Amino acid sequence: MALENQYTLTAGEVANLWNSYMGNTMAVGVTSYFIKTATDPDVVEMLHNAVDIADFEVQGVRELLKKYGHPHPQGFSSEDFNFETPALYKDTIIILIKYILSQAAGPIYTVAHSEAVNYDVRQFYLTCSSRTSNFNAQLVELMEKKGLFHPKIHLPIPVSVDKVHKKSYMGGWLAGRRPLNAGEIMHLVTNIRNIEVEREFLTSFVQVNTSKVLIDHFKRGEQLAEKHLKVFQSLLAKDNLPQFPTLENEITDSTDSPFSERMMLYKIAVFASSTIARYGTAISTIMRKDVGVDFSRLMAELSLYGEDTLELMIELGYLDQIPLAKDSD
């Protein structure tokens, strides 16, 4: 059997480069809009850094795809944004949006680097991972400065480390029999923050849209997010742990859309996909059966919504086809 041409991209590299291009062309436009509307100098400085990172990654993907003879997807451009519209998001939620996205990007770039075979692709994703890690550190400092990590949940410090002796530690399928452990609390808090940001995006998309089809779809997502938040907050409340604030006041009353329909649908598709991944990670590590059941059923609901989002994108002609394997027929 003849050896394959070593100077080609693997399927994994193509998939990761495509996703990077789509996500970062969107990030350039959305972040540029945020820069136009943000009022806090600290936030504006952070956003300029975010644009620089996203633009670097867009140019890097273009060069790699061109080098290996691949076309790049349509991506997002100035046609998908109206930079002259009034502010739709206030500064606090802008910080939280960037924090959530930087958290999601870190593992993605780590996996893309570990899966890459070609040296230049590996180096590209190594740089992306490093820059994203530094950006996340900047965001953590900014969140601390603005008090956005409150409430912080602190646990009693054990005198010693005990072993688990009873299978009842895992609880029942319908009700837990012990307090939440540190890992379970971590997943609940992370997903509460993530879902709350997603919910406010959906609320804002309903507010600025004129298409009944899209309004109905985004309202459905908004209701789904509210349901997930109630489930997660109630699990914390049962252990007398603090409730996390909602962000309704961080959306202005503007009805002018800064984003194209295509961009809004893609944003929600990405949020759904990343949230499903977070839920999957939670399920794999959570030890209390009832909490795992909650994550599993909510993940199934979100998967259906994500599928319907993709079907809507296909129906409207918004979804580029990623390269396929050779047709065997």
Rank of each mutant, 00 (worst) to 15 (best):
F271W: 02
S303D: 05
S260V: 03
G280R: 04
D290R: 10
Y305H: 13
S303Q: 08
A277T: 11
R262S: 10
D290G: 06
T252R: 04
D294K: 15
Y305D: 00
A272Y: 04
F295A: 01
F271Q: 13
R297W: 04
I251N: 15
I286Q: 08
T246D: 10
A277V: 07
E261F: 09
M264P: 01
F259K: 08
S303L: 09
G280E: 03
K267M: 08
T252A: 04
L302Y: 05
S303K: 08
M264I: 06
I283C: 10
A277Y: 01
S284V: 04
T275N: 09
A300L: 03
G292M: 01
F244C: 08
S296G: 07
V270A: 15
T275F: 03
D294E: 12
I251P: 06
F244K: 07
S260Q: 02
D294I: 03
E307Y: 09
K267F: 03
I283P: 02
T246G: 13
T252V: 04
K267E: 02
R297A: 03
E301I: 09
T285S: 13
S257Y: 02
R278F: 13
R297I: 13
P245N: 06
L304C: 07
A269Y: 05
M264R: 07
M287P: 00
V270L: 14
D253I: 11
F244Y: 11
I283R: 08
E307L: 07
V293Y: 00
S296Q: 07
I251E: 06
M287A: 14
S303G: 11
I276G: 07
S273M: 12
F271C: 10
E307G: 13
G280M: 05
T275K: 06
F244G: 06
T252C: 06
L304I: 12
E301K: 13
F244T: 09
